[in-house]
Simulated assay, not measured.
Amino acid sequence: MGQITVRELEERILELEEVVVRIRAPHDALVNDYAGKDGAYERKAAGTTSVSDWLEQRIKPSINGLEYSIINGDYSTPHGRTKLSTLRNSYEK
């Protein structure tokens, strides 16, 4: 697994997952690439996945213990049981 900057990771997550994640680190700090065991993610996580499961499976392995925030459409933090489809729908298109 390669490394990318925090800024690149935030941008990749937004582009693929359609979710805003802010990582508390300098934007040029290095973190693990947004990828699973089989390589880079090509599809967004299922809408039925909870935010907490998504964080455990996809986000936390990339950020090396750094603090982060998930921001929904009304600029608040969604509950961990919120489904990704609900979170994605909270953003104005």
Rank of each mutant, 00 (worst) to 15 (best):
K37Q: 13
S69T: 14
Y41P: 01
G65M: 08
Y75L: 15
G47R: 09
K44R: 14
Y75V: 11
S76T: 12
V51P: 03
S85M: 06
I63E: 01
N64W: 06
D74N: 13
D53F: 03
T82C: 13
N64R: 15
G47I: 07
K60H: 09
A40R: 09
G73K: 03
I63A: 05
H79I: 12
G47E: 05
R58H: 10
D38H: 11
D74K: 13
K83E: 11
A46K: 12
R43T: 07
S62V: 09
N64T: 10
T77Q: 07
K37S: 14
P61Q: 09
T77R: 06
I59P: 03
T48M: 10
S62E: 02
H79L: 13
Q57G: 10
Y41I: 08
N72F: 03
R58L: 00
Y68V: 02
D38S: 11
I70R: 02
H79D: 15
S69N: 15
T77Y: 02
K44Y: 10
N64E: 15
K37T: 13
S69V: 12
W54E: 04
S50C: 01
I63P: 01
G39R: 03
P61S: 09
I71Q: 05
I70S: 02
R81M: 13
D74H: 11
N64D: 14
E56G: 05
G80W: 01
K60T: 05
D38R: 13
N64P: 01
D74C: 09
D53I: 05
K37N: 13
A40W: 00
H79T: 12
S76W: 01
E42Q: 09
E67H: 00
G36A: 07
I63L: 08
P61T: 08
I63K: 04
G47M: 07
D74S: 11
S62I: 08
G65W: 08
Q57N: 13
Y75S: 14
P78T: 08
Y68D: 02
G80M: 02
K37R: 14
L66M: 15
A45R: 00
G39V: 00
L66R: 15
P78M: 08
S85D: 07
S85Q: 07
D38W: 11
Y75T: 12
H79F: 11
L84S: 03
K44V: 00
G80Q: 01
K37F: 12
Y68F: 15
T49E: 13
Y75M: 14
G80C: 04
A40V: 08
L84N: 04
N64S: 12
P61C: 10
Y41R: 06
S76V: 09
D38M: 11
S69E: 15
S69A: 15
L84Q: 04
R43H: 08
D74T: 12
K60W: 03
E67W: 00
R81E: 15
A40Y: 05
K83N: 06
W54T: 05
S62T: 14
R81S: 15
Q57Y: 11
G36N: 07
G80A: 05
L55C: 11
V51G: 02
